[in-house]
Simulated scan of single mutants.
Amino acid sequence: MGEHLARDIGWVLAAVVLLAVLLFGLMSLRRWLLELGGGTVECSLRDLQDANVWRLGIGRYQGDELQWHSVFGFRRRPRKVIHRRGLVVVNRRDPEGEETAALAADALIIEVKNGELSVELAMSPAALTGFLAWLESSPPGWPVDLPSGP
């Protein structure tokens, strides 16, 4: 009886490990597919209207949109879409308090608004420079509002 129980537990543990490896593999494949076309950047997001929790993700530039995908997920569609037209950068700051543990060591935070959308994005200085360049390169006649200095 004990021998059969040990074997059954072994099969269950093997199945759990195999499932974990499979899930990790699927998330890695999804990330690779997102990054395949280029124009991606690691970017954490905090929705100021919902929970105040930082979520790790990947931002993908697609024309006049920044599509944000969660790292820990399987959806092919973005969780947030930030449109360049009418986007306003409200604030730029360094991480404070508990944020320093939740974000990358060199992360900078910007708060952006576009109509009802109000989020904070945390990204590396190089990624932030790219984001601001993307924002400033909008077509003529599109309003762009950027804060001056850090």
Rank of each mutant, 00 (worst) to 15 (best):
V112N: 03
D8K: 10
V112Q: 04
A6W: 00
I58W: 03
L19E: 04
L34G: 10
G2I: 02
R76P: 05
E111Y: 00
A6D: 12
F131L: 14
P95M: 06
K80W: 15
R7H: 04
V89Y: 04
D50P: 00
R75D: 12
V88K: 12
Q67P: 00
V21R: 04
V71M: 14
W54R: 07
L87R: 02
R60L: 13
L132W: 00
A15R: 07
L33F: 06
S118I: 03
E35Q: 15
L45G: 06
G63C: 08
I9L: 14
L19M: 14
V17N: 01
I82C: 05
A122C: 12
I58E: 02
A14G: 15
P140Y: 02
V81G: 07
L56W: 10
D106C: 02
L135N: 01
L45A: 07
S44E: 03
R7D: 08
I109W: 01
N91F: 05
P78Q: 07
A133Q: 13
P78H: 06
R92H: 11
V21Q: 04
V144I: 14
R77E: 10
G130K: 08
A15L: 14
V81F: 03
W54F: 08
I109M: 07
Q62D: 14
W32P: 04
K113R: 15
F72P: 00
S148C: 04
N52V: 05
A51P: 00
P147D: 10
G149Y: 03
G97W: 03
V21S: 09
R75K: 14
H83E: 13
D47I: 08
A51I: 07
A15C: 12
K113N: 08
L13P: 01
L34E: 06
W134Q: 07
D8N: 08
D8F: 03
W32D: 10
L36I: 01
L18D: 01
E3P: 01
D145W: 09
G141A: 09
A14Q: 10
G59M: 02
A126M: 03
M27G: 05
L48R: 14
P143A: 10
K113V: 12
F131Q: 03
L23F: 11
G115R: 13
R60I: 01
L121T: 05
W11R: 15
W32E: 08
S124T: 13
G2M: 01
P139A: 15
P139Y: 07
L87V: 05
A14V: 06
F24Y: 11
M27E: 14
G86E: 08
P150M: 11
S28T: 11
L103N: 05
R79D: 14
V41G: 06
G37N: 09
A51Q: 13
S118G: 05
F72W: 15
G141C: 11
H4L: 14
H4P: 00
F131H: 04
C43M: 15
L23Y: 06
L29A: 14
W11Q: 14
P147M: 12
L45V: 15
Q49T: 12
G97P: 09
E116H: 10
L13D: 12
